[in-house]
Simulated scan of single mutants.
Amino acid sequence: MTLDSSQALVDLLARLRRERRQQSGLDAALVPSDPDTAYRIAARVEAELGWTRLGWKIAATRPEMQRALRASSPIYGRVYAPFLTSSPAMMEAAPLLHPLPECEYMVRLGADLPPRARPYTEAEVREAVASISPGVEVAECRFVADAAFPPLEAILADGTGSGTLVMGAPIEDWARQNIPDQPVVLRVNGVERRRGTAREAVGHPVEPLTWLANELSRTGIGLRAGEVVSTGTCTGMIKARAGEEHVADYGEFGEIRIRFA
């Protein structure tokens, strides 16, 4: 990318976020050349927006999801503070951009994981976790899902389709709970539509969190105490429509309710 084209993409993505709208396709000259370039564009979009970063989302944690998203590894994106809410939640459907609710465990960090030369171990990352909560990410994308949908690098620059996080109460004594094998069921208007477990999708939520800690360390960003990380879908995606109520049932860990008005 040239300096002019990268700035044009930054301006475009920031404008689409501010205006809460999508566009079909993207000029090939504006598509980042590789994932690292795309992530640098995403950082510049954050600076251009001036919004407080809440934390991060992780996606494509398993090979089948990577194939669907045209990725060769897990991917991540920034999540912004205005787009965090608690359950039960009411969301206006009309302004949302092809909203895709995904049942995900959400981790809040209690300690920094700054950039360093040595990779973080899973044990070190686990020690930095303050809490784990059930949640739903309502993902959105600034590009219309049509025949002109741009390459993955454009999606990474757009924050990997980050939208709103709906969090439940923290899981009591999470380190002693069998989080990986807890069934997670998504019901829409009372009808089961999706089912899964963390083990099938991400293993334990600390596993994708460790991957993210090392990716952000490698790129000189790091993770900060207080940040929230949505660790990847346990149930896959489903489009939400006006008038629907989505209930993510995490069994003994609680439920997440979202009504799309």
Rank of each mutant, 00 (worst) to 15 (best):
M1G: 14
M1P: 09
T2Y: 04
L9S: 06
R17Y: 05
R18D: 00
R18M: 00
E19W: 00
R20N: 12
S24C: 03
G25C: 10
L26S: 01
D27W: 13
A28R: 13
A29K: 05
L30W: 00
V31E: 03
P32F: 00
S33N: 05
S33D: 14
D34L: 01
D34S: 08
D36F: 07
D36C: 10
Y39V: 09
A43Y: 08
V45Y: 01
V45M: 09
E46G: 15
E46M: 04
A47C: 02
E48R: 15
W51A: 02
W51Y: 09
R53W: 02
L54G: 15
G55C: 01
A60D: 04
M65Q: 13
Q66W: 08
R67C: 07
A71Y: 00
S73A: 15
I75F: 05
G77E: 07
A81K: 15
F83E: 05
F83K: 07
L84D: 04
T85K: 07
S86R: 14
L97Q: 06
L97P: 00
H98N: 10
H98V: 13
V107T: 11
L109N: 12
D112Y: 11
P114M: 13
R116N: 12
P119K: 12
P119L: 12
T121W: 09
E122R: 15
E124A: 15
V125Y: 00
V125L: 04
V129R: 02
A130E: 13
S131Q: 05
G135S: 00
E137N: 12
E140W: 00
R142E: 00
F143T: 09
I155V: 08
A157N: 00
D158L: 06
T164K: 02
A169P: 03
A175G: 10
A175D: 04
Q177C: 08
N178P: 09
N178T: 07
P180K: 09
D181W: 01
Q182P: 02
P183L: 10
P183C: 09
P183S: 12
P183Y: 05
V184M: 06
V185P: 01
V185W: 02
R187K: 13
E192R: 15
E192L: 08
R193K: 15
R194T: 12
G196V: 04
R199P: 08
R199A: 15
E200S: 09
V202F: 11
H204T: 06
P205H: 00
V206K: 10
E207Q: 10
E207D: 10
L209Q: 03
L209P: 02
A213R: 07
S217V: 01
S217D: 09
R218T: 10
L223A: 09
R224T: 05
G226A: 07
V228N: 03
T231C: 15
G232C: 08
C234N: 14
C234V: 11
T235M: 03
G236F: 11
K239W: 01
K239N: 04
K239M: 11
H246I: 09
D249C: 10
D249A: 11
Y250L: 10
Y250R: 08
G251Q: 04
G251Y: 10
G254Y: 03
I256V: 14
R257T: 12
R257I: 14
I258A: 01
